[in-house]
Design a protein around this nucleic acid. Structure first.
Lengths: 211, 211, 211, 211
DNA sequence: CGATAAGCGAGACGGTACGTCTCGTCTTTGA
DNA sequence: TCAAAGACGAGACGTACCGTCTCGCTTATCG
């Protein structure tokens, strides 16, 4: 008598030539995997405050929900993997010859990246998911551990140059840096300006330097 | 027509003498307001990772959903106000005579408070809501601004004692402190130990000191 | 976190082997459709004056609300379709050889059916929904049009036997019959007795007969 | 922190000089009673399919809900009393000297009145309430009984003129007339045209006439 | 080379929460 | 001293989203 109330229209966010993927039969279709991650990352980056839904991810990727859940345990897991995947290019660790220089270069680059609206949305949404979803939390934990390791490497690399006080707590220093980043990102009371990165680098360099 | 056999059992978290509130007629029932905020805060503090639902808040408070939505615009707004309300006692700013001492006292107390499982859950859940709900975000913004102001006061209070470098960026220093707090709270990779508080206080004091 | 002790007890009206439906995956689950319509019809037929709620329909059918709203636009639409569905057997049009006989047979059967408490409740509730819900009104319109068509057929079938005055207004005659039915059903001042059916049949036959 | 979400604006339907009733202490109620009934009747007559709410009635009448519930047991009771009150002028029983003439006059007037959009809405809404509310049902029962009594009087008045078959079932005849009225009103498949009234009057007159 | 296994798109489904709505009861407060 | 104002408890409504399921198709792999 009645047929099918409720439909949806996702065309608004299908950015590109998504459709028409080839069917790879029995083995995992990597194009689908990419489409899913791209879809998720794009939605994460675009959604102002709107939550990103699985149906939306699937529709935008031109993929069935089943295909998503075959490979990821939960929505958060997809989103986080998408975030990590997208954030691959965030991490240059340069060597300028001095700790202060290395720190300034790294934090400036990191802040600049995190300040881009898309990346900011990505990170905020990733945190939101992580707070609700255990798998996402795990992924975010791994991701941030990687980032901390890079910064930790920069710091401990200064030891052989004698730029490090022997009792410096590098973990704490690292957390100060990323703490400022995430705190400003999540609360939004102050911007991640280049100036802030420079000042923070100087302050941290001084903090860990001998005497 | 059908027999109505209890909807849920919320007795486990009805901490006190909630029931039997009097009807205050035309004016807002402040007992109901308190019951709602207490209910929300208790649930926020208890729920491990489980989301706190409006129906649960209402049921625990012995209040109708309508009464909640009459006064708050969204779930997040209630939760945040509850959090802020509960966190009223978090904020002692003591005067020990020296910046290092003040900082150590303040951060130690703050970390200790935030480390308590209930408060930690409170803050984590508050952030989760804030990332999804504009009203909650606003409330969290106000709350954190208050906290930052306290710490900022401690720092700037040291100026007249000559303990402050003239070019110290106090906002950045404040953000480092709360950054570490929130970062560790949200990521969970390291605990907010008293030791960390002490070290952080020392580091920040040194950061802002002259020379 | 909290113990979940049964929401309601709807067993009283789960007439049959409702539970344990198989999941039909991609295509519409006709068992669910049947369960919904049966649930709705049973509730319509049983509820004295109590309104039938969507949650109740869903619970009795062992179906989620969403599944109902996927296929029907509103509560009224479900109820009406259920009513129409249930009323499928109301309609015998017999041929006794004379208009008076046909009318008597049809009206007697119709009145008898409508007089059954369950069917009476069904029709009353259907009308109540129809007065509040456009989709339900449409469905009731279609249903009653069908019924009128049957009676109209009986009447016009008498023309070739010369039992009909050429200027007889058959639509009006039909409306008199169903008018009495609904009027007594809705107001409840008089019963739809077999005697009334017989007298009405005689009166209408005389009304339309030549001379 | 937050104040008062949800308010409403009823100004759209405050037709006239409703406001500013004087407040003279004790025996003020009759003006309020009139305002309530007028408000209810106007809303019943105007609302297309939209349900008429108690808050709306109260707001439009410039009266508090409490005042309504002080005198009526339920919403339906108010609406029905308003309907009956408004329908006072529906009932002329004229004497044309013949049964056929009396019937034609009465049914024509009745149909014309019921055909007016406002009265039609009034009656439809009244029936809708009556099907959900016992007090309203009682009121509608009384109202329709009055109307039937008038028509019944017209019919039985013909007995002494010898225009009535001795075995005529006048109750059934009355129900045929009002049945057509309500059936067409509620289903809406055919209009209550003057022509229909004339034909119906003739048919019923013939039906009850001797032989 | 044919049979079987698995990936995939589609989309229905159960569950659960949300925020809105209306009803009828209640107390305060303004006139 | 009454009634307007309006807060409140109860509970239904229709929507949203998650994660599971089945279907029917397609392609790769194994016997």
């Amino acid at each position: 008598m009645y047929t099918h109330c409720f439909v949806k229209d996702y065309t608004w966010c299908m950015t590109s030539k998504v459709r028409r993927r080839v069917h790879t039969g029995r083995k995992r279709n990597d194009a689908a995997r990419r489409a899913i991650l791209d879809s998720a990352a794009n939605l994460l980056a675009s959604a102002e405050g709107a939550a990103v839904g699985i149906d939306t991810i699937a529709a935008v990727a031109g993929v069935s929900k089943r295909t998503i859940y075959r490979w990821w345990p939960s929505k958060g897991a997809v989103l986080l993997e998408a975030m990590v995947d997208r954030a691959k290019e965030l991490a240059p660790a340069t060597d300028t010859g001095s700790l202060a220089g290395d720190l300034r270069a790294f934090l400036t680059a990191t802040f600049r990246s995190a300040r881009q609206p898309q990346n900011a949305a990505l990170l905020r949404n990733a945190m939101a998911e992580s707070l609700k979803d255990a798998a996402a939390a795990q992924a975010l934990h791994t991701f941030t551990a990687d980032r901390r390791a890079v910064l930790h490497g920069i710091l401990s690399g200064a030891r052989e140059r004698g730029e490090l006080a022997p009792d410096a707590d590098l973990d704490l220093t690292v957390d100060q840096a990323y703490g400022v980043l995430w705190y400003r990102l999540l609360i939004g009371h102050a911007a991640l300006t280049p100036n802030a990165a420079v000042k923070l680098a100087a302050a941290l360099a001084r903090q860990v330097s001998p005497r």
